[in-house]
């Protein structure tokens, strides 16, 4: 696969999802970036702005297996991973895979489930396998979790601990649609569900090849250093209690590669890093108590901190000298 083929497929997916999600190209683009970078996506926003719709549209545009888990307080870990059941005929335990066995797993309202259940999903996200009754079962590949959650201030929610938020490559929020987008949505949804009309754009092998292609996108030492500098600065920032992890660096660069490929470029620009720094880094950061005491919620503080750090980090220029 080369850059232009990739670009063609990617544009197809973006167009298809765009027919369902009106006026949110950035969110759609970030979601696809995460998918192509083999990451997991956290969509966080108030109910009713299309979080689930985005997840489902993205899943549907790819011709893979898609499962959807509605998280509730009484959901058990085995409801996600699957259970071993004794088969009377074969007289042996057989593994009955849970919904996590799919290419795209949509986890709705993940913060409504108990921490125990949440961690079952989050562990499988990281390990890309589940272990039931001492036996490990590999998950599908490609495997992406698109989780939605309501803001933590809502009733009946268990906020994801920071260690678990770290598993998500990126966090986006949808935001309310603007006037025209909302009007368009009204007209479209009255007659038929656009989601039903959405046909898969790429099949599974193509998606796998696209993901393989993203791995080959070139990251120059200059850009690597740029990303590292940004991440390291978050660990020193006065407004932040917890900075981003090394895993964040890795995921920032990986996401940037996917973004570059989405643009039809075979190398990463500092601009790609800049554009992804807030979605990739902000949800991993913990503001200090003082910086949130004025009523600003922690995510806003973290977002502003990331923006400030990116603006203050100088961009390396000049080609490295080949050794």
């Amino acid at each position: 696969m080369d850059a232009s083929t990739f670009h063609g497929f990617a544009q197809g997916i973006l167009r298809a999802v765009g027919t369902v999600i009106d006026g949110k190209p950035d969110a759609v683009r970030t979601a696809l970036t995460v998918l192509l970078a083999e990451g997991h996506l956290l969509i966080e926003d108030v109910p009713g702005v299309g979080k689930t719709m985005l997840a489902r549209a993205l899943a549907r545009s790819v011709d893979g297996t898609v499962t959807r888990i509605q998280f509730t307080p009484d959901l058990l870990p085995s409801d996600i991973t699957g259970v071993s059941i004794f088969n009377q005929q074969t007289r042996a335990f057989e593994f009955n895979p849970g919904p996590v066995f799919a290419n795209i797993v949509i986890g709705d309202e993940i913060n409504r489930a108990s921490p125990k259940t949440q961690s079952a999903l989050l562990e499988s996200m990281e390990e890309r396998q589940v272990t039931v009754d001492g036996r490990s079962h590999r998950l599908y590949s490609p495997f992406t979790v698109i989780a939605t959650q309501n803001p933590v201030e809502m009733e009946g929610t268990y906020a994801l601990p920071e260690a678990q938020r770290d598993r998500f490559m990126a966090r986006i929020s949808m935001g309310y649609p603007d006037l025209t987008a909302e009007l368009a949505m009204l007209r479209d949804r009255e007659t038929a569900s656009p989601l039903d009309a959405l046909a898969p754009v790429v099949d599974l092998p193509t998606l796998a090849r696209m993901i393989d292609y993203v791995r080959t996108v070139y990251v120059s030492p200059a850009v690597e250093q740029y990303a590292v500098r940004i991440v390291q600065t978050t660990r020193r920032d006065a407004a932040l209690r917890l900075g981003a992890s090394p895993r964040a660096t890795l995921q920032l660069v990986r996401a940037a590669k996917a973004a570059a490929a989405l643009d039809g470029r075979e190398f990463v620009l500092p601009d790609d890093v800049d554009a992804l720094s807030v979605p990739v880094l902000a949800h991993r950061l913990l503001p200090t108590g003082r910086s949130t005491s004025s009523g600003t919620d922690s995510l806003t503080v973290a977002t502003e901190a990331v923006r400030r750090i990116v603006a203050a980090t100088s961009v390396p220029v000049g080609a490295p000298v080949p050794s």
């Binding site: 120059s220 030492p221 200059a222 250093q225 100088s314 961009v315 390396p316 220029v317 000049g318 080609a319 490295p320 000298v321 080949p322 050794s323």
Partner: peptide, 9 residues
């Protein structure tokens, strides 16, 4: 601006 690192390519 800082010069790009001279790391091996």
């Amino acid at each position: 601006e800082f010069q790009a690192p001279l790391a091996p390519v």
